[in-house]
Design a protein around this nucleic acid. Structure first.
Length: 484
RNA sequence: GGCGCCAUCGCCAAGUGGUAAGGCAAGGGUCUGCAAAAUCCUCAUCCCCAGUUCGAGUCUGGGUGGCGCCUCCA
């Protein structure tokens, strides 16, 4: 299967061909751990989690590296504000990040390196760049000489003179040129620092990714990804540093996800219009957030709203309700080989999924294509179009297995459906102060009334339940209830 | 000012130049004692103008509107 990706470097979709056949090195810029992660972060890590999963599903080997930037201005500032050590700040938010990722079903990367554990590599890399004449020490800092690097701007499609106009020069800066940026920053009193040939100091913002990606993936590797806002300057600078040091091409495919927006504006710290993952998960199922994020192609902006989340949550409920029904239907049944109901349609489910995903990881299209499969499962459970029970069972089993396999790639629908639904109901019931035992009692009463054909009484009970916020469903197996 | 992105049904949203997926909402049917759930059916010619083409939502040019990066930002 040919996989095509949109490469920011070339501004077009191209076949994804790794350096080494069948093996991918992939680096995603991880969080700077100075605060709780918000929905924008969730999008990045969910997106590229799915990318890694799909590549593996498609038979490729993937080495996935996702770093923690655990030394940085913002961490230091936060530490000073809160009166704790910077390392304490970063450790705490790494823990919080891990918890959020777990909630969202984001699998850990293969390597999750920290900047503070790679200072020697960083220093070594800077020395290499200096030796090649593309960086210079100045008063304990080291700067990258942007104008000495001929490819600068190739990722963000900028030219140096345009950049010059907007370049920031701070008082006390020792840059030779306003475009230059720091590879190493001399330590100020009270800041975390490490020994280096230029005195005590710490790494600049971009160098860590150059150093750590080279260490774990090599000087040239396949995929480098992150949010669109990292294209400039972060990724542009990484390219400059890495290629200056090695003389070789850096990452070959650059993937960038679009922003999460609120009211059509970028969700960001500086605008203050963000929701942390934690906040969202208090209101909605984690899987609903994940479903929502995957429902729009990763490169497009996605507008965050309660309405959209509620939609996604309803859809996730529907899917688990369907799967639960199927599980119930298949319980204790033997699956025999033979023809399927709607064979053609059923056989298309998996290929359609793969095709959608192989086209620049179009999870939104993939999800759309699944609608059919769920509708068919429901139909087969309730009103099968055939009397051939063995074929129905066979088809249901097949669809369920494929949906599960697809779910494993998307990181969705993999909880035991029964447990998921029960947990959902308990949560919602608790929120509304509904007493489960009381509900069961009323359902029993209503059952009696129905048995006695006293439908007026039965309907009164249902109205009572409805007033409590409980919806009941009569099924062949008995009456069930839920909190809508 | 420079660079880039986006504009598809009431809402969300996919769409390799070949005749508009899917979800929600809405309307109608089936099922049901009545419901709910489920299922089936119905429901758009793609911001505007011009062009290229046998053929354009999809390419080109020009508008209009929105967003982003150029400073920390996923």
């Amino acid at each position: 299967m040919e996989i095509r990706v949109y490469n920011t470097l070339t501004n077009r979709k191209e076949p994804l061909a790794p350096l080494v056949e069948g093996k991918f090195g992939m680096y995603v810029c991880g969080p700077t751990v100075y605060d709780m992660s918000h929905v924008g972060h969730a999008r990045v890590y969910v997106t590229f989690d799915v990318v890694a999963r799909f590549l593996r599903f498609a038979g490729r080997q993937v080495t996935y590296v996702r770093n923690y930037t655990d030394v940085d201005d913002k961490i230091i500032r936060r530490a000073q504000e809160t009166g704790v050590a910077p390392a304490e700040v970063s450790e705490r938010f790494i823990r919080e990040f891990i918890a959020d990722m777990q909630s969202l079903g984001v699998a850990p990367a293969d390597v999750e390196p920290k900047v503070t554990e790679h200072i020697p590599e960083i220093v070594g890399l800077i020395e290499k760049i200096i030796a090649r004449g593309l960086a210079y020490p100045a008063g304990g800092d080291v700067y990258f000489a942007v104008r000495e690097f001929s490819g600068y701007g190739k990722l963000s499609k900028r030219n140096l003179d345009d950049l010059e106009a907007g370049a920031r020069v701070e008082p006390g800066d020792l840059k030779r040129d306003p475009l230059d940026f720091a590879l190493w920053k001399a330590a100020k009193p009270g800041e975390p620092s490490w020994d280096s040939p230029w005195g005590k100091g710490r790494p600049g913002w971009h160098i860590e990714c150059s150093a750590m990606s080279a260490k774990y993936l090599g000087e040239t590797f396949d995929i480098h990804a992150g949010g669109k806002d990292l294209i400039f300057p972060h990724h542009e600078n990484e390219i400059a540093q890495s290629e200056a040091a090695s003389g070789k091409p850096f990452a070959r495919y650059w993937l960038h996800n679009g922003f999460v927006q609120i009211d059509n504006e970028k969700m960001s710290k500086s605008l203050g219009n963000f929701f942390t993952i934690r906040e969202v998960l208090q209101k909605f199922e984690a899987e609903a957030l994940r479903y929502f994020l995957l429902g729009t192609h990763y490169r497009n902006p996605i507008n965050f709203s309660d309405l959209a989340l509620a939609d996604a949550e309803r859809r996730v409920d529907y899917i688990y309700e369907t799967l639960a029904k199927v599980d119930e239907r298949l319980a204790g049944r033997q699956v025999t080989p033979g023809a399927l109901v709607e064979q053609e349609q059923v056989e298309k489910v998996l290929p359609a999924f793969s095709e959608a995903m192989a086209d620049d990881f179009n999870a939104a299209e993939a999800l759309g294509g699944l609608a059919n499969a769920f509708a068919l499962m429901n139909a087969l459970c309730e009103k099968p179009p055939t009397k051939d029970k063995a074929a129905v069972v066979r088809t249901l089993a097949r669809l369920r297995d494929e949906v599960r396999a697809i779910g494993a790639v998307l990181g969705l629908f993999n909880q035991p459906p029964g447990e998921f639904l029960l947990r959902r109901r308990e949560k919602k019931a608790a929120a509304k102060g509904i007493d489960g035992a009381r509900v069961e009692q009323l359902i029993n009463d209503r059952g009696e009334a129905r048995k006695a054909k006293d439908f007026a009484a039965a309907d009164r009970v249902r109205d009572e339940l409805k007033a409590m916020g409980v919806e009941i469903m009569d099924t062949p197996a008995g009456t069930t209830w839920k909190v809508p």
